[in-house]
Amino acid sequence: MVWLWRVLAATCIGLGAVGIILPGLPTTPFLLVAAWAGARGWPALEARLLQHPHYGPLILDWRQRRAVPRRAKWAASALMLLSATMIWLLPAPHWLRIGLPLFLLGVAAWLWTRAEPSRKVD
């Protein structure tokens, strides 16, 4: 079972790394999942993620308070708006043109109801 947690953690690290390079693919959610999976099967990786100067505080804020920095909320909202706009500009099935913006609106509403960290996060 440990190897399944490690595969999940490694896959999420890889997707997070791609997200650093590829605009529109979020990095932090993948690192949150990687730390979660690492806690179950790869403690050394979890510790390394928690000690990371940029992502460590974000992971700890999420774990302790389910907190998301305001800057991340704005960035995610802007990317969701861009995605919804693109789905209207490109050929897409009608159900997707209606469903995706509604889904993203729900995600944005959920995201903006999350707490914000008490300390400043870059």
Rank of each mutant, 00 (worst) to 15 (best):
L105I: 06
L96D: 09
W74V: 14
D61C: 11
G38V: 10
R66I: 01
A39H: 05
A44P: 05
R114A: 02
L15H: 10
L105P: 03
P69C: 02
R6W: 01
K120G: 03
P69W: 07
A35T: 02
L32W: 03
W74D: 04
P53E: 09
F103S: 12
A35Q: 07
W74E: 04
T113W: 04
S118T: 15
L25F: 09
I87T: 07
R65T: 04
G99M: 08
P57N: 10
A92G: 11
S83W: 06
A109Q: 02
H54V: 09
L90C: 11
W112V: 00
E46L: 07
V68F: 08
G41S: 11
A84Q: 03
R71D: 04
A78N: 04
S118V: 13
R48T: 12
A78H: 03
I21Q: 05
A17Y: 03
A10M: 11
R119M: 08
V2F: 10
D122T: 10
R114D: 01
L104N: 11
L111D: 01
L4Y: 07
R71W: 03
L58Q: 07
E46Q: 15
I20L: 14
I20Y: 05
A67M: 08
L31V: 02
I21L: 15
T27N: 09
R63E: 08
W3L: 14
W95A: 14
V68G: 08
G19F: 02
G19T: 01
A115L: 06
T85V: 08
V7Y: 05
C12Q: 15
L50H: 10
W88I: 04
L82H: 05
M86H: 06
A10H: 12
R66L: 09
L111Q: 00
R40I: 03
L45M: 15
I59T: 03
L15V: 15
G106E: 03
W62F: 15
L31H: 05
V107W: 03
A34C: 09
L89H: 06
Q51H: 12
L32S: 03
W62H: 09
